[in-house]
Simulated scan of single mutants.
Amino acid sequence: MNYWLIKSEPNTYSWDDFVKLGRDHWDGVRNYAARKHMREMEEGDMALFYHSVNDKCVVGVAKVVREHYPDPTTDDDRWVVVDLMPEFKLDNPVTLEQIKNDSRLSEMVLVNNSRLSVQPVKREEFDLILSLGQK
């Protein structure tokens, strides 16, 4: 199993929007590195759902339920989507500030390349963020 972090602007597509749908494809990715990561996602992988821009925090966990296929929002066949389902919301959002201030997370891609919208996460980082987000 692999672990990921996916980013969305909450005023465009929030965790609550995602939960209301119950399942959705992750579209609109137009960065080659992020696309590479989406192509590596496998059914059953887990992803931290991160609110970018204003909130800057991990708010929930999603599960990959369908591996990559052509992005239906474009005619350009270079781009792909994956299908995700919400698993659970964190009790407490884990902020970017918390992540940056925790030396155990200093190697996390989010800390070193915060602009990448889909990024890998190490199992230890994933588990630590979950523990920080629980009551």
Rank of each mutant, 00 (worst) to 15 (best):
1 M>F: 01
2 N>I: 04
2 N>P: 01
4 W>C: 10
6 I>N: 00
7 K>R: 11
7 K>Y: 01
8 S>C: 09
8 S>E: 02
9 E>Y: 00
9 E>N: 10
10 P>L: 10
11 N>E: 13
14 S>C: 14
14 S>N: 06
15 W>Q: 06
16 D>P: 08
16 D>K: 15
17 D>N: 13
17 D>T: 03
18 F>G: 08
18 F>Y: 13
20 K>T: 12
21 L>T: 07
21 L>W: 10
22 G>F: 04
23 R>V: 14
24 D>Y: 09
25 H>V: 06
28 G>P: 13
28 G>M: 04
29 V>N: 00
29 V>Y: 05
29 V>W: 01
30 R>E: 03
31 N>Y: 05
32 Y>D: 12
33 A>D: 10
33 A>N: 13
33 A>R: 13
35 R>A: 05
38 M>W: 05
41 M>F: 08
44 G>N: 07
46 M>D: 14
46 M>K: 15
46 M>W: 09
47 A>C: 12
47 A>E: 04
50 Y>F: 12
51 H>S: 12
52 S>P: 13
54 N>Y: 14
54 N>H: 14
55 D>G: 08
56 K>N: 14
57 C>E: 11
58 V>F: 05
58 V>E: 00
58 V>S: 02
61 V>S: 14
61 V>M: 13
61 V>K: 05
63 K>N: 09
64 V>N: 04
64 V>M: 05
66 R>F: 01
66 R>G: 03
66 R>L: 10
67 E>T: 12
68 H>P: 04
68 H>K: 08
68 H>V: 02
69 Y>K: 02
70 P>S: 06
70 P>L: 03
70 P>V: 07
70 P>N: 07
73 T>R: 11
74 T>G: 06
77 D>N: 05
78 R>A: 06
79 W>L: 10
80 V>F: 02
80 V>D: 09
81 V>L: 03
81 V>D: 00
81 V>S: 01
83 D>A: 07
84 L>T: 01
85 M>T: 14
85 M>E: 15
87 E>W: 01
87 E>Q: 03
88 F>T: 00
88 F>G: 01
89 K>Y: 02
89 K>P: 00
89 K>V: 10
91 D>Y: 05
93 P>I: 02
95 T>E: 06
95 T>W: 01
97 E>P: 00
97 E>F: 03
97 E>L: 06
98 Q>I: 04
99 I>F: 00
99 I>V: 11
100 K>M: 09
101 N>V: 01
102 D>R: 08
102 D>T: 10
107 E>I: 02
108 M>H: 07
109 V>T: 13
110 L>A: 09
111 V>I: 14
112 N>K: 15
113 N>W: 06
114 S>G: 12
115 R>F: 11
115 R>H: 14
116 L>Y: 06
118 V>D: 06
118 V>R: 02
121 V>E: 09
123 R>D: 13
124 E>R: 12
125 E>S: 12
127 D>F: 09
127 D>W: 05
127 D>E: 15
127 D>P: 01
128 L>G: 12
128 L>V: 07
131 S>H: 11
131 S>G: 04
131 S>L: 05
132 L>Q: 07
132 L>D: 07
134 Q>Y: 12
135 K>A: 12
135 K>H: 09
